[in-house]
Design a protein around this nucleic acid. Structure first.
Lengths: 237, 237
DNA sequence: CGCCAAAATTGATCTGTGTCAACTGTCTTC
DNA sequence: GAAGACAGTTGACACAGATCAATTTTGGCG
């Protein structure tokens, strides 16, 4: 939640050797289209805590996460917060129907995004149904994840929530080649609590409990997963 | 959860005078396309409790709800249930990426749907980007609702959950012209509990409490909304 | 390095909601 | 219209997780 002084990458960039090329929206585009897209997007840097966009803001851009992790959250008027997701490289943000964002997004640590102004990007999609199909695919995948998360929030115990979160987070990082049995957790305990519908104390206690049980090992900036099978059993998957 | 004996409407039907024509996926189609679509869909009836599809089933169809209310839910292995939504006329079901449904759906009372076989409907979409855009729009709207529901499940008290549910349900029915200050509740208390991440007892007690407070009046098959402002305050909207 | 602020952990206690159980009301069927 | 089954309500009590309050650990910075 710092003042908003973002950095725009000065020189050109090329989509063709972009790290997320293969699994982001862009995966649906051919070399020629990619070249065109290059002119529409600009790379923008955010530092830890910077807000990328806020709920209820008029949507002006789409964002393609290139690097880093973002917190996606909604606030109640009295300050209660629910984190509705974490965005990782390859995630596409900014879709909506009301013309306004329906959640806020800020950076956990340094984040690099590819930002597209809404109107030109909208035009670009216009006559490229395969891109639209790709965007739809991403939306449907998110919807499926959202429903899984509803089950977690509504019907799981604190132990199950934490175990399921650690396994799910690890799985996501694995698919990006960013984890092994040591799982980095760039977000704070408070973030985890707000994602799981718990308090920070309960999250902390549950971590300690899982460590006592020999399921995980708490390390700097993350955990070591010692007993995956046991963790899966606890998650009631 | 009855045996599966669905009824298929015998004679032809016409999309042009369909009740959901204006707000379902079909709203994106012109008269000619509508005529074509007519041949792809068949109307199917379900009676109370009949399962329309189950989680993990291979997707074979898309469904357009014409009439009635459906329960959309996910089960945990030990029987805990989370209702992820209620489908009403105009809702479009069957989108997924894995080729399998990611939740189950059954009928609350009598339901009529327009069913489209996956492959031909997929082909129909193929060269109709405006239909794809419409489907995307519906997916994004659902995603937004899903996120709102996450906030409710993760961060709201029982009172807030129930109040927010009643107001939200009323709002949806209003937009379909199916409610006024008396709000029909076709689903059971257990369904409401499983939707809100509560127990049936807590839901029942909260209804009674709201009635004592003069906010609602409990009637057969629904409630009367007596004090909307108060309900909104309780929902912490 | 030493100081400060923030994050995380731990303990003690409280409470909202779940659990268990009894009861009531309503609908169905013969 | 009696009997059974099921849905809903109500009460008493239990407990998972919240709250309140220290304390410890970590990280940033002069």
């Amino acid at each position: 939640m710092k003042a908003s002084l973002v950095t725009i990458e000065p020189n050109g960039h090329s989509c063709s050797d972009c790290a997320v090329r293969e699994f982001a929206v862009c995966s649906s585009l051919d070399a020629v289209e990619l070249r065109e897209l290059e002119h529409l997007g600009r790379r923008v840097h955010f530092t830890a805590g910077q807000i990328v966009f806020s709920e209820e803001d008029i949507t002006t851009s789409f964002y393609n996460v290139l690097d880093g992790v973002m917190r996606l959250y909604k606030l109640l008027s009295d300050g209660r917060r629910q984190i509705v997701g974490f965005a990782l490289p390859g995630d596409f943000l900014g879709m909506n129907i009301s013309g306004r964002h329906n959640f806020s997004a800020d950076a956990i640590g340094a984040v690099r995004v590819c930002q597209f102004a809404k109107t030109p990007f909208g035009r670009f999609i216009e006559d490229r149904p395969h891109l639209l199909r790709r965007i739809n695919e991403l939306a449907i995948r998110e919807l499926s994840q959202a429903r899984d998360h509803m089950v977690l929030l509504g019907r799981r115990s604190a132990d199950e929530k934490v175990a399921a979160f650690l396994l799910g987070w690890r799985e996501r990082l694995l698919s990006l080649g960013m984890a092994s049995d040591t799982v980095p957790l760039p977000m704070s305990r408070q973030d985890i609590a707000d994602y799981l519908g718990l308090t920070i104390e309960t999250v902390s206690r549950t971590f300690t409990k899982l460590e006592r049980l020999g399921v995980i090992e708490i390390i700097q900036g993350g955990i070591g997963l010692l007993d995956t099978a046991r963790a899966e059993a606890l998650a009631a998957a």
